[in-house]
């Protein structure tokens, strides 16, 4: 029973971290119809920034700085790699995203020398508490709460403010919203800024659990977050969050399945789930149905 509860709690916390990344995916996809393959690597860069900055600054300076720099990175990626391709076919933009991902990974390999780096222990988050007889880190308990708060704030932003209204309009119809006087470039930049900031927060929580940072560390959580976004219905923020929690929990239960080598299938399970959803319910849990016009 204790084992069950600790697995569940751990699953929820991993799910929360995926959720923070998945929001970035789902918002970008909703607006640009682009799978931002580089998003997982932005998350990885945030982890590396955390390591390097905390080595030279006290934590209360370093962590906000990590968020600011990650946001700047996300903003620059959009301006340099995606904006020039706005009128290009969707495939070109996606290839550009893969190129950015490749660039970030290779740069990270160069800077770190390919060695795994160890993420600093954040005070409080790394402290352990005892819940239902099992001792776990604070981060495991805090992540879901933080995610829920952030999601509520975000939905308020999208449903109640002017920027949010602009975002919804752009997601609905790119060209018409442009005609209505919405500055789509600034809306898209805002999306990337929010996504990157959440990825930075996610990286702090994630690497408190798994403290080793290697250049390819972002690709798997990135892909899983994307699967979560698809699962929840791409474009929908609550959908992405619920999808992420479900995937996090299922994944941790797959890990403890009673057959030999079950851990090998943790990643495979997520992708099998993805293929099943895509085949049977491509719009996901909360997605809107899209029809093709000839």
């Amino acid at each position: 029973m204790e084992f069950f509860i600790s697995t569940l709690l751990f699953g929820i916390s991993v799910g929360g971290q995926y959720a923070l990344i998945a929001i970035g995916y789902t918002m970008v996809y909703g607006i640009l119809r682009l799978i931002n393959f580089a998003h997982g690597d932005v998350f990885m860069v945030a982890g590396l920034l955390g390591i390097y900055l905390s080595a030279s600054f006290p934590l209360y300076v370093a962590m906000p700085l990590v968020i600011i720099l990650t946001v700047a990175l996300g903003f620059c990626i959009e301006r340099v790699a995606y904006k020039p391709l706005r009128s290009a076919p969707r495939m070109s933009v996606m290839i550009s995203a893969i190129g950015v991902s490749y660039l970030l990974q290779n740069t990270a390999t160069y800077v770190t020398g390919g060695q795994p780096m160890i993420y600093p222990t954040l005070p409080f988050l790394s402290d352990t508490i005892t819940v239902a007889g099992t001792s776990i880190k604070w981060v495991v308990v805090l992540t879901p709460i933080l995610v829920v708060v952030l999601v509520i704030l975000l939905t308020q932003l999208i449903n109640r403010t002017k920027v949010g209204m602009a975002m919804r309009a752009v997601a609905k119809d790119f060209e018409t919203s442009q005609l209505m006087g919405i500055k789509i470039n600034s809306v898209i930049s805002t999306t990337f800024i929010i996504g990157s900031a959440l990825a930075a927060v996610g990286s702090m929580l994630y690497f408190t659990n798994y403290s080793s940072v290697v250049p390819t560390v972002g690709s798997m959580p990135g892909l899983k977050a994307f699967v979560a976004a698809v699962f929840g219905g791409i474009g929908s923020i609550p959908g992405a969050v619920i999808g992420a929690f479900l995937i996090g929990i299922c994944e941790n239960f797959v890990k403890i399945l009673p057959f030999e080598g079950a851990t090998t299938f943790v990643d495979a399970f997520t992708f099998a789930l993805l293929i099943i959803i895509l085949v049977f319910k491509p719009t996901g849990l909360f997605g809107e149905k899209a029809t093709d016009k000839v």
């Binding site: 119809r33 682009l34 799978i35 969707r90 996606m94 892909l223 994307f226 699967v227 698809v230 990643d267 495979a268 997520t270 992708f271 099998a272 993805l274 293929i275 895509l278 491509p282």
Partner: peptide, 13 residues
């Protein structure tokens, strides 16, 4: 793009 991600997932499986 759904095809891309599904085939990518297949390779991982």
């Amino acid at each position: 793009d759904y095809l891309a991600i599904a085939t990518l997932g297949f390779a991982e499986i």
